[in-house]
Design a protein around this nucleic acid. Structure first.
Length: 282
DNA sequence: CGGACAACCTGGTTGC
DNA sequence: TGCAACCAGGTTGTCC
């Protein structure tokens, strides 16, 4: 599910729905995803109050009032669902969401946070709050694609240091820019009119400016529409996002470009599929 | 540095 | 119908 807009959707909703709640229990049916002994996690979270939620790249952080924080990564098919006794089941996606609940944090009065994850790639860690930003996978993140620090000058600096790379693979490199995944790399490149296999050194200043603006625009728009549900993504209420209606190229290989009618192509880039319009993108 | 590839899992879809 | 091959939003580690 998760690129920046989807994770931001979950973090915002979780903040609103679970802030102030006290955790009363934790159960799991797939301990490999819990990166510490389950008994230890239970001891640390039971009785703790949720004081806030944050996002680092695609990581979700839930801060507790006891000086510790839960860090969660949803990877490919993870979801966090907030439910209560009056709402046992959220809308299903052929049961691919409710059918794969792996971990549950219980709150008071029957309320709970359920972590569903069909492919079991997602994980949960527990850290002291002051050490969250030192976690390897967070410490190694580059500038967040939606933060104010992601200025054009910063972007240009990144590109000037990586002249031999393909722009399509660079966009997925979380150590350089954090938050972009396979959907938004294709969409941002389409909006900027740049082919994914173009070398960064061959981008003109105008193209770099346009791409910088396109990245921010496409991510902001996707956050506003609560993400893309082309596949499994659901928000904390089990609702699909709406950005998939706005996709120009992602997963549209063989279909006509919405702007010019040319057939959209798919190529392999960094082991993953990238999509582009051969007419609109040069 | 960077590309290729396997691994972690459980499906759904496509083609013969 | 059966079955193999390929596809899937992420990240890490290894090898070259």
């Amino acid at each position: 599910m998760p690129e920046l807009p989807e994770v931001q959707t979950v973090v915002s909703q979780l903040g609103r729905k679970a802030k102030g709640e006290t955790i009363t229990g934790f159960e799991t049916v797939w301990t490999k995803s819990v990166k510490l002994p389950v008994a230890e996690l239970k001891r640390a979270v039971i009785g703790a109050k949720i004081v806030g939620t944050r996002r680092f790249g695609k990581h979700i952080v839930i801060d507790l009032d006891n000086g510790r924080s839960l860090v969660i990564h949803l990877k490919m098919t993870g979801h966090l669902l907030v439910k209560d006794s009056a709402n046992e089941r959220h809308p299903l996606f052929r049961d691919r969401v409710n059918g794969y609940i792996r971990h549950v944090f219980s709150l008071k009065h029957g309320k709970r946070i359920e972590f569903s994850d069909m492919r079991k790639f997602g994980w949960i860690r527990l850290l002291e709050t002051k050490h969250v930003e030192s976690l390897d996978s967070i410490a190694s993140l580059g500038v967040d694609a939606l933060s104010p620090e992601f200025t054009f000058d910063r972007w240009n600096g990144i590109l000037l240091k990586r002249k031999s790379r393909l722009i399509g693979t660079l966009l997925l490199d979380q150590a350089l820019i954090a938050g972009i995944g396979n959907i938004y790399r294709s969409e941002a490149l389409f909006r900027a009119g740049i082919r994914p296999m173009k070398k960064t050194a061959r981008l003109s200043l105008d193209e770099k400016r346009l791409l910088h603006a396109s990245i921010r625009e496409v991510l902001r728009e996707a956050v506003r529409l609560r993400g893309t549900s082309d596949g499994d993504f659901r928000d904390t209420a089990g609702r699909p996002g709406r950005f998939q209606k706005t996709l120009f190229v992602y997963r549209r290989a063989g279909e006509p470009c919405r702007r010019c009618g040319t057939i959209i192509r798919r190529i392999k880039l960094g082991q993953r599929s990238a999509f582009y319009c051969p007419q609109c993108q040069r």
